[in-house]
Write a protein that binds this DNA or RNA. Structure first.
Lengths: 229, 229
DNA sequence: CGCATACTTGACGTCATTCAAACCGTGTGG
DNA sequence: CCACACGGTTTGAATGACGTCAAGTATGCG
């Protein structure tokens, strides 16, 4: 299936937004859209010809699995995010859809050629890569020293921020994009600890659980306070 | 002090190696070399005009300090490494010299102009950024689930690898570039735990401590085994 | 309805932290 | 030269936070 950039939901924000219409059309000729169902894998660690992609809708996780079978989530990818290890001969991590998702995929060599041909694209990807690096280090900071409660509070705070359209305010109410197990895998905790600490955050009045996945922020100030940032 | 790229110890490996001699000379005119003593800071989190730099000799750490004063080391920088958050209005982390170091610094706006002018530089920095991202995620993977002993074993393994000139073999013997406290800050452990687990690794025969900072790898296989990768 | 998947809750165990004290190598000044 | 202070390190004992194991409760889907 061919690409129609003009109707792309992220044509203003994705990396390719820096290209001219002509350049973008040229790239579109090499790309394909793809849909993934929840749980479906885009590529696995070790794949040699892992594709690159821009996420259009949905959400992905980047994760590693150690030899005991424990998953560690390294990053979440939101729409307009770019996936793909550009200069690596093979993928280091798994990429899996958290929800039904739509992506715009390219063969790695096509992206590499585009980077040569369109300097603006290289700069856009550099910007994105630096942002990803910052996100990774932020998560590292969190999982390094903080208590289970602080980690959870920080994650909820981030989710509330991401769920809000305004870039300066938290969403009052949102659905967790991750299961308890995935939250645990992301923060280095167990399912049970996540469940317990969520309960405690509710008891203290910072949040309120609404069903399985719904979260209502009762006291953003307190939540931020607990997160220790 | 002006730059003499021709005598630069990393002129083959740093990002600027992709430039032509003329281009490099043009950049050199805007840059300055700088030396840092052990413990000296290149810039601090929050600095608005944090410089960018290529490390020539020595070693740096990138770290964050939470509001209780706990430091978390997010990354180590080795010669030819690039430091600087290119598109951020201010620095998010501290950068401090671990040993006496020499760097080649540039004002951020000069780098940003160079990225516009020299597409090859943008690609080189993109490559480096992706490598940094991978390193950050690898550390994240480590601190996420692994036991104290596994974290330490993995770090020692990495150091032994970095200390070797050959890219396929471990160094038998090397000096720790970090104090116990810094190792702890990097792995999310306390000084005491680091010390204890080093002792245990010695008892099991994986390593041998030689003085305060010296490490002799007795059984690389065992070490790798303990690290769980 | 029955089974599967996700979540919650409790009791118990373990590993890393905390607190405290001693140790060692190095540099400094008497 | 010795005494001493200082930073980094080691070691021990007690505590506590999180993990493990196990049971039980929704929620959803064939």
């Amino acid at each position: 299936m061919n690409l129609a950039c003009s109707t792309c939901p992220v044509n203003e924000t994705a990396a390719c937004a820096v290209l001219t219409t002509e350049e973008r059309d040229a790239m579109a000729a090499a790309g394909r859209t793809r849909t993934l169902k929840r749980g479906e894998m885009l590529f696995a660690a070790g794949d040699e010809d892992a594709a690159c992609a821009t996420l259009l809708t949905g959400a992905l996780k980047v994760s590693a699995v150690d030899q005991d079978g424990n998953e560690q989530i390294l990053s979440l990818v939101h729409p307009a995010g770019f996936i793909g290890e550009l200069f690596a001969p093979f993928a280091h991590h798994d990429v899996v859809a958290l929800t039904d998702s739509r992506l715009c995929t390219f063969a790695k060599r096509d992206i590499e050629r585009a980077i040569e041909d369109y300097p603006a694209l290289a700069r856009a990807l550099l910007r994105r890569s630096q942002a990803d690096l910052l996100a990774s280090r932020t998560l590292l900071e969190l999982t390094g020293h903080a208590s289970a409660e602080a980690r959870l509070a920080a994650l909820l705070h981030d989710f509330a921020f991401a769920a809000s359209d305004s870039s300066c305010h938290l969403a009052k109410r949102f659905d967790l994009p991750l299961t308890r197990g995935e939250i645990g895998n992301m923060l280095g905790l167990t399912i049970e600890t996540v469940s317990r600490k969520l309960g405690e955050l509710e008891e203290t009045g910072a949040i309120q659980r609404e069903g399985k996945r719904g979260i209502l922020i009762r006291d953003p100030e307190l939540l931020h306070d607990i997160s220790g940032r």
